[in-house]
């Protein structure tokens, strides 16, 4: 596959802060790609550099083969960005905003039909002539998505698109984005909602302190998580006293009769745990294992819990 976005050794400083430390990354055409990281990790800086909103100190970035600096006109035609903040121009209606945005890309006159399709797809048709100020937060978010798509870009970047959005809208947004992906668009998603990345993305990059700490398929990352942090939840008939030290180190939490263990798949196994508990005289009422989720991987790789 060819690269939709190619990032090569990108550095960016803000004063003394080294926001991106030699970031290199390739996102293939047609991928649904997740970009994860805690606040301040450098996600937004990276996206802004790809979109041309921020200038890198050194390195090279291209979108669909077009350099974002030397061939910025072409690269910006190929990319649509849904910003994180709910920003809008209060002077205009939804339709005016979309017509103006298409016009910037030289597609004003030919976009009428496409704008109608976008309004319909995003359930905004009845709000087409409403001023942006009068729309709810969720509707404003949908207008932002329409604005990013109005010039028919190949690559769509969604920067935390569901932050502060209710569950119902979130689900309808993802249906729309999945349909875009099925139509052949490359989707890049940054999110704090790890379950979103887990359910949608094919490959995931995790960045922290301006560095890439993991880049792999979702399955591989999850497998890494399973190997490192397999969670076993045990409910006993009675609380356990006098737990030996080698078992104590494996306990994540104790809540009365319920104990959560974290096992290393390489060195521990569940049957040994069960035997150990029985040897201590415990009666096991319930035992559950949980697959690792991306949050575990995220925590493990970045050393902190996401919010």
């Amino acid at each position: 596959m060819d690269a939709a976005i190619h990032i090569d050794n990108v550095h960016k400083h803000y004063g003394s802060l080294h926001a991106l430390k030699g970031m290199s990354l390739t996102i293939e055409k047609g991928e649904f790609f997740g970009l994860l990281g805690p606040n301040g990790a450098g996600k937004s800086t990276l996206i802004n550099i790809i979109a041309g909103l921020t200038r890198m100190d050194s390195g090279q970035v291209s979108v669909m083969g077009q350099d974002v600096v030397s061939n910025y006109r072409q690269s910006r035609r190929r990319i649509g960005v849904v910003p994180q903040e709910l920003v809008y121009d209060p002077f205009f209606s939804v339709r005016e905003i979309l017509q103006i945005q298409a016009g910037y890309f030289g597609k004003g006159k030919q976009s009428t039909g496409w704008i109608d399709s976008l309004l319909e797809g995003l359930k905004l048709t009845d709000k087409a002539d409403a001023n942006m100020r009068t729309l709810s937060g969720g509707m404003k978010r949908r207008v932002l998505i329409a604005q990013a798509l109005v010039h028919k870009p190949d690559v769509v970047i969604l920067d935390e698109p569901t932050a502060g959005v209710d569950v119902e809208l979130r689900s309808s947004l993802w249906e729309f984005v999945k349909a875009l992906h099925n139509d052949g668009h490359t989707i890049v998603l940054t999110t704090h909602y790890l379950e979103e990345a887990e359910s949608l993305c094919q490959r995931i990059a995790i960045i922290n302190h301006g560095k890439l700490v993991a880049l792999d398929s979702k399955e591989s990352l999850l497998a890494r998580g399973v190997g490192m942090t397999c969670a076993v939840s045990v409910t006993l008939a009675e609380p356990l006293n006098n737990i030996p030290d080698d078992l104590l180190t494996k306990i994540k939490s104790v809540d009365g009769e319920k104990i959560e263990f974290i096992l290393n798949r390489g060195t521990d196994n569940i049957m040994s745990l069960v035997d150990c508990l029985r040897d201590l005289g415990a009666e096991i009422l319930d035992l559950r294992t949980e697959d690792a989720d991306l949050e575990d991987v995220f925590m493990e790789l970045t050393g902190q819990r996401s919010t």
Binding site: R76, P83, G106
Partner: peptide, 17 residues
């Protein structure tokens, strides 16, 4: 106004020189 409200981004994302 565009800078304070943040909507300047919609012009900066375009292929305008």
């Amino acid at each position: 106004q565009s800078k304070v409200s943040g909507n300047i981004v919609f012009v900066l994302l375009t292929p305008l020189s």
